[in-house]
């Protein structure tokens, strides 16, 4: 799967990226993680607040940093 972390570089966005990478590594998900910092590209996902977690083009979580467990549940669906 393809995971995108949307965020312009605020501390929360970095936290989300870190947690996501940990979850992917610990659970052996086959995923490519891309950090999107370009504002124009971020805005194509129609979100209002960063950070956001996008999996295979679908916005799963936006505007907050979820727990590792929640990310695991989201990723397990794919």
């Amino acid at each position: 799967m393809e995971i995108k972390i949307l965020g312009t570089g605020c501390p929360k966005c970095k936290t989300l990226e870190k947690i996501t990478r940990e979850v992917v590594a610990q659970n052996g998900f086959q995923a490519e993680i891309i950090k999107v910092e370009d504002l124009m590209e971020i805005m194509t996902y129609n979100i209002l607040s960063t950070p956001a977690l996008v999996v295979n083009g679908k916005v799963e979580i936006k505007g907050r940093v979820p727990s590792a467990e929640e990310i695991k549940q989201v990723l397990a669906k794919y």
Partner: peptide, 11 residues
């Protein structure tokens, strides 16, 4: 959060 104000404005 100041980093969210621009996405919000555009949204």
């Amino acid at each position: 959060c100041s980093c969210s104000s621009i996405p919000l404005f555009i949204g």
